[in-house]
């Protein structure tokens, strides 16, 4: 050792004191860590892009010869399916967002985060949302690109913005939920079990694969209260060309929901989930 560690600098000159700058610094650091992990382990990204494309091709082929009046309007099944796969992919990614946090808990790394004087522990949620939303948007563009190559079209610029907004709303809410679960559940086995149980049933009980009109009544009810449906239908509308969010998009057994209604319900869900998990972030913390 030939260097002294002492410095005479005062704490005020070594630290950023603005609260908003502190929060941004935390979010930047946490997000950067997630992206470094992704770049150095790209297999998860590659698999995450390939898997929905396989879904698109396989399910598209599976229902290719379905009855003509099966879908609303003149829509082809691949076109119908694309928005369902986009939303399901984003949903799955967000539902898995708690896993890295759970591993940080299990390996003691989370303790090092929590012993730091974070301005707000919401920075952990926000950084995960930025990360998952970025991946989801990348995946969605890959799906949209392949859909376009298959002749199912591409949404307009406004439609693309609507797709992005809808995905961010969904990802924010589900990521918050997953992070909350990662704080509450005892370990990653339990979290994985919950993800497995929730994932596919929520897909099948939504309008991702078939419209509500095609479902038995009881399943139609489930699909009409499923948040995935409220994300799928605006994206489907973005594909259809007309961007009038006042149009009825969901013909639910309990009433009709417009595009605005879908986005409003998604927003309420997202805010509700975020507010619900905030106390969980502080669970057992001082």
């Amino acid at each position: 050792m030939n260097t002294t560690l002492s410095t005479s600098t005062s704490q005020t000159s070594v630290k950023n004191n603005s609260k908003s700058i502190q929060f941004i610094q935390e979010v930047q650091a946490l997000t950067r860590r997630l992206f470094i992990q992704l770049l150095r382990r790209p297999s998860t990204l590659v698999a995450g892009i390939l898997q929905p494309l396989i879904w698109l091709v396989l399910f598209g082929a599976l229902f290719q010869n379905a009855p003509v009046d099966f879908l609303p309007g003149e829509m082809e099944y691949g076109e119908f399916l694309g928005s369902g796969i986009i939303v399901f992919t984003a949903f799955s990614g967000a539902l898995n967002a708690g896993l890295p946090l759970m591993f940080d808990r299990e390996f003691g790394f989370l303790n090092r985060l929590l012993v730091a004087p974070l301005h707000s522990r919401s920075s952990i949620v926000v950084s995960s949302v930025i990360y998952i939303a970025s991946i989801s948007i990348l995946q969605s563009f890959a799906i949209m690109g392949v859909s376009s190559l298959l002749g199912y079209g591409w949404p307009s610029l406004l439609g693309t913005l609507l797709v992005t907004l809808t995905l961010i709303l969904l990802v924010f809410g589900v990521t918050a939920l997953s992070l909350g679960l990662a704080f509450v559940l005892p370990g990653h086995i339990e979290l994985l079990a919950l993800i497995f149980v929730a994932n596919l049933p929520l897909l099948f009980a939504s309008t991702a694969l078939v419209p509500i009109s095609f479902m038995p009544t009881w399943l139609g009810w489930l699909a009409a209260i499923n948040p995935l449906t409220f994300a799928i239908e605006p994206i489907r509308a973005a594909y259809s060309g007309s961007l009038d969010l006042g149009t009825v998009l969901v013909h639910a057994p309990y009433g009709e929901i417009t595009g605005h209604g879908c986005l409003l319900l998604l927003s309420i869900l997202t805010i509700g989930l975020f507010l619900t998990i905030r106390p969980l972030l502080n669970r057992k913390l001082l």
Partner: peptide, 10 residues
């Protein structure tokens, strides 16, 4: 660097 940022160091 990551930890330095969590402690809000310049």
């Amino acid at each position: 660097q990551f930890h330095g940022d969590l402690y809000h160091l310049r």
